[in-house]
């Protein structure tokens, strides 16, 4: 873990070598979700609510997803960009160092500019909470923290899963973005607005629903059962097979050298 922070520090120094470009990136990262946000605002202005979800409730959902995604992009970017590591052959370098591959890939890249998106997400979260009438309890706060953590874990798992594909294809698969960007776009709205099949996919296969929609029901007081507060832990269940596939991929790489 200390090594991870050392990596982070070094790459932060590297990033600061290009200050102007960094600041512009932060601003740019802030703007992308902002356009989505304004779209949301005007839509609600026109239609009032969305399948029984008010504007601020949807905002809460939106903020949680975007914060989790930006945190993941910032800290697990190494997996997102992993195919370039394989193509350039720099993955060989990682293999001759006496540390695990996962920590080294995580440490190979950080995308600090995502702090822009994170700040916007946090702003929206606070604004939504202030406008919602929520009876906060320690359990609800725990649920919110778990939602965020679980979102990060699920996004990171998808990054790892997609990165593993490049052991087979060398070139990363653009199709993988269906899961990452697609997952983000879908889960920024409450799952209940979608078709039942899609709901099932995002609950039982990729458990975004457990990290987002279901605990939100509890926080908003639509569900009383406290088990909903702990559903985000299901995100950990998704991480396990992804790590397994990663390990298989590393073994395959070492026997093909592709």
């Amino acid at each position: 873990m200390t090594l991870y922070f050392k990596y982070m520090l070094l790459l932060f120094k590297a990033q600061m070598e290009y200050r102007a470009s960094f600041l512009l990136l932060v601003l740019g990262q802030c703007l992308t979700p902002f356009t989505v946000f304004t779209g949301l605002y005007f839509m609600f202005e026109r239609f009032g609510d969305m399948k029984g979800w008010s504007f601020y409730e949807v905002l809460l959902c939106f903020a949680v997803t975007h914060m989790a995604f930006s945190i993941t992009e910032c800290f697990a970017r190494g997996f997102d960009m992993f195919s370039s590591l394989v193509v350039s052959g720099d993955f060989d370098r990682l293999l001759v160092r006496p540390r695990g591959t996962i920590i080294q890939v995580l440490g190979s890249k950080f995308e600090f500019s995502r702090v822009g998106r994170l700040l916007l997400g946090a702003g929206v979260l606070i604004w939504a909470i202030m406008n919602l009438d929520i009876a906060w309890s320690p359990l609800k706060i725990t649920a919110l923290v778990l939602m965020e953590a679980s979102g990060v874990i699920i996004f990171a798992s998808i990054f790892i899963l997609c990165a593993s594909f490049s052991f087979w294809t060398v070139q990363g698969l653009e199709i993988a973005n269906i899961l990452t960007d697609g997952g983000r776009e879908m889960t920024q709205y409450p799952l209940s607005i979608y078709h039942r099949r899609i709901q099932q996919f995002f609950t039982f296969i990729i458990p975004f629903g457990c990290a987002n929609y279901l605990p939100l029901q509890y926080i908003l007081g639509r569900e009383e059962n406290p088990i909903y507060a702990f559903l985000p832990l299901a995100g950990l269940l998704f991480l396990v097979p992804c790590l397994l596939i990663w390990q298989i991929g590393v073994r395959r790489y070492r026997s093909t050298g592709s």
Partner: peptide, 13 residues
């Protein structure tokens, strides 16, 4: 291990 054609140093620091 030194790969002459590839760097193991971090480029910007």
């Amino acid at each position: 291990v030194v790969f002459g054609q590839r760097s193991q140093l971090w480029w910007d620091v």
